[in-house]
Write a protein that binds this DNA or RNA. Sequence first.
RNA 1: GCGGGCAUCGCCAAGCGGUUAAGGCCUCGGAUUGUGGUUCCGAUAUACGUGGGUUCGAAUCCCACUGUCCGCCCCA
Length: 408
Amino acid sequence: MIIKAPKGTKDILPSEINDWYRIENIAKEIFKKANIKEIRTPIFEDTSLFERGVGDTTDIVNKEMYTFIKSDRSLTLRPENTAGTVRAYLEHNLYRESQPVKLWYKGPMFRYERPQAGRQRQFHQIGVEMFGVQDASIDAECIMIAVELLNKLGLKDLTVEINSLGCNTCRKEYKEVLKKTIAPFLSGLCQDCQSRFEKNPLRILDCKNEECNKLFEENNLRNKLTTINLCDECGTHYEKLKKYLNELNIKYVENPFLVRGLDYYTKTVFEIKSNNLGSQNAVCGGGRYDGLVETLGGSHTPAVGWAMGMERLNSLLDKISGEKIKFYVVSDNQLEAVKLTQKLREQGFGCEFDYNSRKFAKQLEKAAKTAEYAIILGEEEIKNNFYTVKNLNNSEQKKLSFDEVLTL
RNA sequence: GCGGGCAUCGCCAAGCGGUUAAGGCCUCGGAUUGUGGUUCCGAUAUACGUGGGUUCGAAUCCCACUGUCCGCCCCA
């Protein structure tokens, strides 16, 4: 019996690795221009980091974490990387550096969920976190960078959705209004919504349950509840963000029901959705989390960030075909072949040689699949100290010296 | 956690109760002894997810399990 990769995990094979590099390379360029620095944090963290950070009413923390105990310590495979980044920001006193601190990361995340299209148990995110700026201009920059990356990757049919969840004060009021308005219908709502009612009533508006939806529509609840009464500050912040996005020519749709399932979001939240994915259609999600640094033991520090699902991105992109190396040595003398290979590699060229002294026809066939040029090194060449070089794209063949080979 | 679909060689597949279980791709070898990508020939030496059952007989019918995919939920 062959052991298979665990459910919801995938091997990334050599034939697809270039697809990953493409995303990473384009992202790195963009991050560099924006002066965003890379950070790498552990793949597992103290369980309490996620309980406190992500929020213990969230699905992620409630039922999706890979948690294990090792010598009396409860550890958890990171389900997302904002909490870990904030932890590192605090642990290494990054708040004492000049602000804003702008960080990016990429790596595997783990959530115990039922796998389906665009959803795995181990998946990869690339993300950005920016600390220390209250002004909406950084929310705009954050979204701008995400959009730039998606555009550079050549993605089409994307929709940027935005919303504001308000800060703690206005949200508290809004929650009361929500609860008052929904209370009469509570018994008709689904179980999830019933438990959300106390813990996190904001999420009720997000419910996709048919009966809940019916109730909402019959009583026009959604429209009544759409407008969160943002306090002055939050209202201005949101208006400012929209103004920036308009000026930056970033098209967006306001989605008042965009309520994220992570507890730490405040004010701005956004998602970028693709129409070419299945039901898991968010390629990018993020928002502002002004309270998180404080929740995790720091002083009040505003922050914004987003994350993208790399395999979702990949599934939207054309596959890149494998690259060829420069040279392939065709020879019936393996010793000379490997020596030439060594010399060429030392000069910085990709080179392979044929391990079997088989017919040149076979070797050439392999060469054509592997390389741009075949270097034929037979008795005659060795005796007279030259190389027969064949361009495998156009079949041109020349007799060259070693130095001439280097100019190819 | 709840629904639904699917499981035939490395990949794509035909087959729908009695076949030596097609075919294509890929890989490997060969077509008079140093030249590929086209063509031709051949090979991959018991491939029907697993375990039960029905039947004279099952890849084809039934059951269970497992895997996978698609939805719900949630999210990236």
